[in-house]
Design a binder for these strands. Sequence first.
DNA 1: AGATTACGATTTTTT
DNA 2: ATCGTAATCT
Length: 739
Amino acid sequence: MGGMDRLLKDLNEAQLEAVTATEGPLLVIAGAGSGKTRVLTRRLAHILRQRLAQPHQVLAVTFTNKAAGEMRERVRELLGTDVPGLTVSTFHSFCARLLRREAESIGYTKDYTIFDADDARTLVKNCINDLGLSGSQFSPRAQIRKISDAKNKLITAEEFASRASGYFESTTAKIYRRYEQRLRQCNAMDFDDLLVNAVILLREKHDIGQHYRQRFQYLMVDEYQDTNHVQYLLLKNLVGEHNNICVVGDEDQSIYGWRGADIRNILDFEKDFAGAKIIKLEQNYRSTAIILKAAGAVIRNNQARKDKTLWTAIDGGDNVNYMLVDSADEEASEVVAKIDAMREAVPVNQMVILYRTNAQSRAFEEHLRRRAIPYQIIGGVGFYERREIKDILAYLRLLVNPKDDVSFARVVNFPKRGIGAKTLQDMALLARETDQSWYQVATRWHEYDLLASRGKRLKPFVELIEKYREQADSRPTDLLVQDLIDELNILQEYRQEDEIQGQTRVENVEAFIEGVAEYSAQNPEATLVDYLSEISLYTDLESYEEDEPAIPLMTIHSAKGLEYDIVFLVGLEEGLFPLARATEDPSQLEEERRLFYVAATRARKRLILSSATTRHRFGVVESIPSRFVEELPIDLVERIDRRTGRTAVSNTPAESLSFFGPRHQTRRSPRQEQPKGVHYEFEGEEQFRPGRIVQHPTFGRGKIVNTEGFGESLRMEIMFTGAGLKKIMAKYAKLRVVG
DNA sequence: AGATTACGATTTTTT
DNA sequence: ATCGTAATCT
């Protein structure tokens, strides 16, 4: 058998067509769970196997490093060999590498620094101060937001200024302009610049653009629905005459509008790329029919979508569960109880807890820890964003790029050297006057009267940096970092600050050093610049260990592209999901709905939803169940009201899902009449009653101390002879009454 | 300069 | 409630 057959095996008709349609523009509309990754990887492998192109002539772009890594690995498996030269990369790291090579032609050096969101905000804050504006009227956060929006539309500071009207906009224009100037002075780019500058490079440096257009014979893009205008332009400027571009996406899963993603990119693909072929993948291989029906019923309420119908061969399935509880704490305790009960039957890494905002993770963490269930939190404050790591990184970045004022300001007085705000301010002033970086001014402190009195403090700092700078090229980075940490006595510093937090800081620093060592071992050729560049684009998603026996907790955004047997989707409340600010704007509301859709379609077998009736945000606020819950087909949902302990059984189409009577919101789809007459089921409490002795498969023999809830939701506190007191859900624990 | 305190904003999601 | 920043004190 030829290898070709294997690459084309086990594909449905649409998938096969997508894999083999290699020439010309192709849009693959890939519904959730429709085998998108499989198509992409097979297609890539097919192109290589058929020798339609050399590996270095193929470019595949994804959004996350994780997705890129997986694609690379799967292609390798399919071809049974490494594929040197093949580029499978994220938009950002592709651009970063391109810019490293060509930095000089746009006025940067190869050593340019990549500013993360935090650095960018700091720099904007400096700009606001430079312009003598009040930080309260122009918050760095809001300003960087506006600047980023502009960049994502490829609007330069000049264009922004010329379009600006009114005081606020023209002030933002000034801040934008100053920010751009400062970035260049720092030899730094923010995340948006990576894309913007790459586009400018390809577009305006004709020979460079031509070079890459000729090189890449085949382009493939994953998650096309999440591309923004700049990313679109990047692709446009990379596609050569052959026009071989294949994009894969699903408009129903577009969830990055807030970051400038433009859903029109996918909706207008046929117009943008003449002669485009469109293939729809509509068979879902992941979820049960019930889950798909439920998710589909919700997404149908969106206007901005092409109609498509996903279908699955997996008939039936368990009903969607919906749990109403009193508080965030109870929500966590209920969810964790269910997980605990189910974990005998389902491996914990086949379940997931999904929430709208990172802040929600906390309650779950506590309860998971209490029950000693292993978990891993994905996202939130990433490893490289922690203070202690950023401190060390700032030193390294300054070594590599002495123009990096943001890093300089971060380390010049850490650990404390008696160089305070006033000194920094004076240096900034001198830097501005003499057109140098802050560090450069510091190295020449003796030339300036203004700094003369601070020489005693500045000199040792400069000498320290210079000493390490000389070593940066020759000494292995992990040893360099180790020396630096020892010499600065940073760990002691953290311990002194706060005993408890200091300890985790120390551990993180140690983990960091290990990470550096590992990196150098794996990439012996790599320089410090390479390393810094790589971790600038690292996200916490990469740290997710899918095989680890721990339950993952993450935001819905992070869960895109993943799948689980059992999905707990929590915090379904108006104001939280959908978020309050999204409820005003129909297009934002639709994005929230897509988010719900993404969450629901992560589930293979069971979907368990929950809302709390009170949730403290800043003070106690009542909350009502999310409108998305009401959009679910009633006969597919089994609800449990934890406050009354009642279980409303499915197949009671009679009842409205609204616990609070009719809602004022207008519904798009008219619902049938809703006669009263709720049906509740009580069962189980007969045999499981306090005092009874039961047998549990793992905990052994125990006595029921207390029971709560009824029916499906009956749970018990049981004192086991060996294992002590446990809370157990009757439904999942295979309990046998023995006395 | 550095530490302490008080106040105020702040919660979306991430490369 | 928590975090970060600004004002105030040592």
